[in-house]
Design a protein around this nucleic acid. Structure first.
Lengths: 233, 233
DNA sequence: TCAAAAGTGTTATGGTTACACCCATGA
DNA sequence: TCATGGGTGTAACCATAACACTTTTGA
């Protein structure tokens, strides 16, 4: 038992994990990773993976831990999104949640539910179930952040496979920005940034002209960033 | 006494309040509001106004309350900045702080210290004392946010007097961005946005040609924002 | 009349947009 | 040979950047 002179809010972290499926036209689109809650409140509802912060644990560590525990996913990119603290956001008691914003390659991980989650899976953001707590609000903030951020930080690559075609990259931008982009202009722009490495390899198993594949040159990007280079799409 | 099964971090809010003094050349520059801590830890050190969040109080309400209590300042603009939760950021125990970012017109308020603050005053960001806790980190994040944000949101007006000259506005941008701007281009740009109202009044008591005064047309800005208009400097 | 800041237009440049056809591949 | 997506260049337009002199005012 821990005793305090004043009542204290509980502290949690929640992770909004985005993935992007480009595999086929039917499931294409932005995906978000949800777990099905095993316990009350909102038992059996879908929610973002997350949970209580341990008193001697860094916030970001807690976010990574909860994500792995509940879904088995280790994400490559994770940053703080916003802190949600509405007094009535949890019916049990005052709970303040630091939300994190994460990106993973959908193909990289087998999702498997555990601990407080009876199920865990990717959902297309366009057809989500009702979410627990204020998680719909959190999602809106996260999508807004993603949309803003891909314009001036090369985070799109976190969602791409290791080797990708320019068309795949463009598709990702179109999905997130929700508008079509001109193919020639997009290519001109992205190649002029000089942060892609030509893999000298082509797609295989496609029944049309095979696209050239590229990798993101993270080293080069970071070096040039320090020199004042600005990524911008 | 309040008892919990697990140890809980304490929750605080801190306010980074910016003001801008354009009155004279000597004190010109970005100012930040600090209080002198009355209690341990960091007794007598300077810190941002802030304090514990009550268990039934909204985070933003707590930020406003602490700011008024400790400094007497009511701010016009306040938004969440970032949550700082490093395990070792407070020597007493685990304290997670939601930092807020606020802007006030320096001229609007008489600063007066109270409650936990033995003193409260504006400091130029260019010559600050050592700050308590991790408040230097918080300040850096806040300045970075301010610098980014003035480019695409008309928050500069929150720091201007009600009626201001274009030169004053330009000075503010120069101070925050830390680079000179071209007078003609700045005026052309800001006037073309069509969000200023010509007061049809001039500066008084200056020993040179009196500048025309303007007001920010908040109504018009908000209306046009909804229609997809983007402020950008 | 002097000092100090206000106010004002034009040109060059570079980035963004719009746009249509041929190419390579597997079925 | 057909269907499918891959790959490519140019011209118009617009926003930004650079730049210097005249005007007004109070001391």
């Amino acid at each position: 038992m821990f005793k305090y002179q004043h009542a204290r809010p509980a502290m949690t972290v929640d992770c909004v994990v985005f993935g992007c499926s480009l595999a086929d036209r039917l499931t294409a689109g932005l995906q978000v990773l949800l777990i099905r809650r095993m316990n009350s409140p909102f038992q059996n509802s879908w929610a973002f993976p997350g949970g209580f912060v341990r008193v001697d644990e860094e916030l970001e560590t807690a976010a990574h831990r909860e994500l792995v525990e509940e879904t088995g996913v280790k994400c490559g990119f994770l940053e703080q999104l916003y802190t949600f603290g509405r007094v009535d956001r949890d019916p049990r008691e005052r709970v303040i949640s630091v939300a994190y914003f994460a990106l993973v390659k959908v193909t990289d991980h087998q999702v498997r539910a555990a601990t407080d989650a009876s199920d865990a899976k990717w959902w297309p953001t366009k057809s989500l179930p009702d979410l627990a707590f204020d998680h719909d609000t959190i999602l809106n903030v996260a999508i807004h952040r993603l949309r803003g951020k891909i314009r001036y930080q090369p985070i799109g690559f976190e969602l791409m496979p290791e080797k990708f075609s320019l068309t795949q990259l463009q598709q990702f931008y179109e999905i997130v920005l929700e508008r079509p982009l001109d193919k020639r202009n997009f290519r001109k722009k992205i190649l002029s940034l000089d942060i892609l490495i030509d893999c000298k390899a082509k797609q295989t198993g496609v029944s049309h002209r095979a696209a050239n594949l590229y990798r993101f040159d993270k080293k080069k990007y970071e070096k040039r960033s320090k020199q004042g280079f600005n990524f911008e799409i």
